[in-house]
Computed example of a mutant assay.
Amino acid sequence: MTLFGFGKRAFSDLTEQEILALAISSEEDDGRIYGMYSDALRERYPASAKVFDDMAAEESEHRHRLIELHRQKFGERIPLIRRENVRGFYERRPVWLMKNLSLDTIRREAMVMEAQAARFYRQSAARTSDASIRKLLGDLAEAEKSHVSLAHRLGLSNLPTDVRAEEDETARRMFLLQYVQPGLVGLMDGSVSTLAPLFATAFATHNTWDTFLVGLAASIGAGISMGLAEGLSDDGELSGRGSPWIRGSAAGIMTTIGGLGHALPYLIPNFWTATVVAILLVIAELWAISWIRWKYMDTPFFRAALQIVVGGFLVFMTGVLIGNS
């Protein structure tokens, strides 16, 4: 039911009580994440671990302020609502992906977390009419925004130019989430999901033109599906990930390109020549995707390559086996 964002609440539909409840659960989750970062760094970087302990304590203080206001306005019972229940709400790494992260990666993650939290509080404050709720949400937005430079707090720098560099890095990370990530997901889906129907047709018919038509249809169909999925899943208002039209277009176009890459060789009349060229292009596509994930998405290259290449190989063999059956 979460496909295309169905089964989730729109942020604009939340009541003031639900906004407070969402803020409480988010502060609790972020405090736990900072605590996990601290545990991961304690042995190698004890000073940095202490910084994340302090940040976890700040999140706990924010949560207590939110709970106290909720108690005053709405009573003791806090509605159960979490970020995964709200369409377009920013996501955090799963727990198992936080292990063995480098200090630089943790710093980048924390900077993005602060930027996202500040945006959430600004958007929430703009939607509330109660003066005390609006004031607290605005104060928390400023608290998240005006945190002392994370690089400075980690003892890595103390110059204004370093603060500017950190802000630039935060902006770069947000750009990756807004534009690069949807395109990369589309490229991965187009390159992998179209392998089975393309090569099943190729080996079943040995007809290059029919194979090209199937590849063309599969690529365009997958592009439309991915574009709709990305565009409808998040309106960008809360997450700050940009216009759904831009993200949906990026995902859809890159999905189509990913599928067409190995469909175009079947314009070559000779079946085996076209097939060899298509296979070589598939290999190049999969390794290029692995490199992009390593370069921009903080995924270890070996793991990225293993996931993409093994997945692509299994889908390719599925198509070959079905085509020869």
Rank of each mutant, 00 (worst) to 15 (best):
L101D: 07
E144C: 00
M317N: 07
L3G: 10
S193Y: 02
G5H: 03
H64K: 15
Q17K: 10
I279V: 09
M174Y: 03
L195Q: 03
I106K: 06
H70G: 00
D13N: 14
L232A: 08
A21P: 05
R107Q: 08
A250R: 13
A229Y: 02
Q17V: 12
I106V: 14
R44V: 08
Q307L: 14
I253K: 12
S38V: 10
S38T: 05
D30I: 12
K73R: 15
R9Y: 00
G227H: 04
D210P: 01
G75E: 15
A49D: 12
L22T: 06
V309L: 06
T2A: 04
D168P: 03
L306M: 12
V309R: 04
I224Q: 05
L177C: 12
D39F: 06
A131S: 13
A288G: 04
K73V: 04
A274V: 05
K135L: 15
R42Q: 12
H62M: 14
A263F: 13
F271L: 05
W209A: 11
V180K: 06
H62S: 14
L213D: 05
T318C: 15
A115M: 13
L314H: 11
G311C: 09
F203D: 09
R153L: 06
A40C: 10
I33E: 01
Q116N: 06
L306S: 14
S48C: 14
L306G: 13
A49L: 13
L228S: 10
A56M: 11
F11K: 09
L216H: 09
A141H: 02
L177H: 05
E169G: 11
D54F: 03
E18I: 05
I19G: 10
S157T: 02
L22S: 02
T208D: 08
L177E: 02
L136G: 00
F301C: 14
N270M: 12
V180C: 13
I24N: 02
K73L: 15
G221M: 01
H64T: 13
L69R: 03
S25W: 01
L66T: 03
L176I: 03
T105R: 14
W272R: 12
P244C: 00
D234M: 01
Y45D: 05
D234W: 01
L184I: 09
F4G: 07
W287A: 15
E237W: 03
M188A: 10
L260C: 04
I81A: 03
L140Y: 08
I24S: 03
S325E: 13
E167T: 07
A131Q: 13
T2K: 00
K8T: 14
A229Q: 08
G236A: 04
T208H: 00
G311S: 07
E68K: 12
A217M: 10
L137E: 03
I246V: 15
A274H: 01
A200F: 00
T15W: 04
G138M: 07
L137S: 11
F212Y: 11
L154W: 00
S124N: 13
V214S: 07
L41H: 09
A171M: 12
I246G: 04
